[in-house]
Amino acid sequence: MLEEIYTVSDNTMAFLPDFDGVGGFKTTILEVDDLKECHLNPIELLDQNLRFFGSSLRGASEGTRYILGEVNMYPVIMNLKHQLVWFPTRSPKKNDCVWLALNHIKSYKRNKNQSTKIIFTNGSSLNIEVSFSSFEMRMNRAYALKFRLEYRSSFMLIPPSVQRNFLKYDIIKEANDINYQIHSKDEDSLDN
């Protein structure tokens, strides 16, 4: 049965493109305990979910670029509250692009034929025609986005009055020295 509306949850692991052979393009949704189909293609489904949570694919990609800098095949923050980060296996413009939930990738390994095998948290596996190094780079970008989100979330909880009182240091090790030199930073040099 095709889902008209599908909302990503903590149990959603992947969006797989599904072609019906007569020009139809929909999405197979891989969950921890279920397999569903939606009449939207993966990009439409991704955008619909981002809009549901108050963003859009365009807004999420601009947010990622702001956090990570200029990157190709950017990960997106699907749900900020739950810190659900998703990333594409190849260019999102390609019809065979699979979108993966970072929190459900248990492991991955190189296949002999230059493809990559992904093992999900529920034990399911997916073989994708993407090199191991390309997949690992995309996954590392997703981890970097998640890490920076977590850092910003926890750092924002510290009141600015407390942050101003943090002690700041320049820690330098000269090439021929055994020890590190520790110098207290003054307020005038903080912008350097």
Rank of each mutant, 00 (worst) to 15 (best):
Q114V: 02
Q163P: 00
L16M: 10
I182Q: 09
R90N: 08
V162H: 09
M13V: 02
D20I: 12
V98A: 02
R138Y: 14
K185Q: 13
Y6P: 03
P88Y: 12
F87H: 07
P75F: 13
L40K: 15
M156C: 11
T64F: 07
K94V: 03
T28R: 15
N49W: 05
P92Y: 14
I182A: 08
V22G: 04
A101S: 14
Q181R: 05
I5V: 11
A14L: 03
I105K: 01
R141S: 09
M78G: 09
F135E: 01
Q83Y: 02
E70P: 01
L190M: 14
Q181P: 00
T12I: 03
S189Q: 15
D96N: 12
V98G: 02
N176R: 11
T121P: 00
N127H: 10
K36G: 00
W99Q: 02
L68M: 08
L84E: 08
E129A: 14
L50R: 10
N49M: 03
E70D: 04
D188Q: 12
D188G: 01
A60Y: 14
S56M: 07
F25G: 04
G21M: 08
K168M: 04
R51W: 00
Y180K: 10
V130P: 08
I118F: 03
L80T: 13
E136Q: 11
N41W: 02
L40A: 07
K185L: 14
Y169E: 08
I119M: 05
S56T: 08
T121N: 02
R152P: 00
R58N: 10
S55E: 07
E4T: 08
R65T: 06
G24F: 04
M137Y: 15
F19D: 04
L16R: 12
Y143F: 13
F120C: 00
A142C: 12
N192V: 06
K112P: 04
A144D: 13
L16N: 06
I5T: 09
L57I: 10
P92F: 13
F120G: 00
L35F: 02
D20R: 14
S61M: 09
P17W: 05
E129C: 06
D186N: 15
P75S: 08
N11Q: 09
R51L: 06
K93S: 10
K93Q: 11
F19T: 08
E187W: 07
M139N: 05
F135A: 03
V85W: 04
F52Q: 05
M156T: 08
H82S: 13
N49R: 04
K94H: 11
S61E: 07
C38I: 03
E3D: 04
G123Y: 01
G69P: 06
T7Y: 02
R51V: 07
N111T: 10
Q114D: 01
F120A: 00
R141Y: 13
F52K: 14
F19Y: 10
L145V: 04
I158W: 03
I172E: 14
D188S: 14
K146C: 07
I5H: 10
M156A: 15
Y143P: 00
D96E: 11
L84R: 15
L40H: 14
D186Q: 13
V71Y: 11
P159E: 15
S154K: 05
D34C: 05
D188R: 13
S154A: 11
D191K: 11
N79T: 03
V76G: 11
Q181E: 13
K117P: 01
E37I: 13
M1E: 07
G23V: 08
D20L: 10
T89S: 13
Q48W: 06
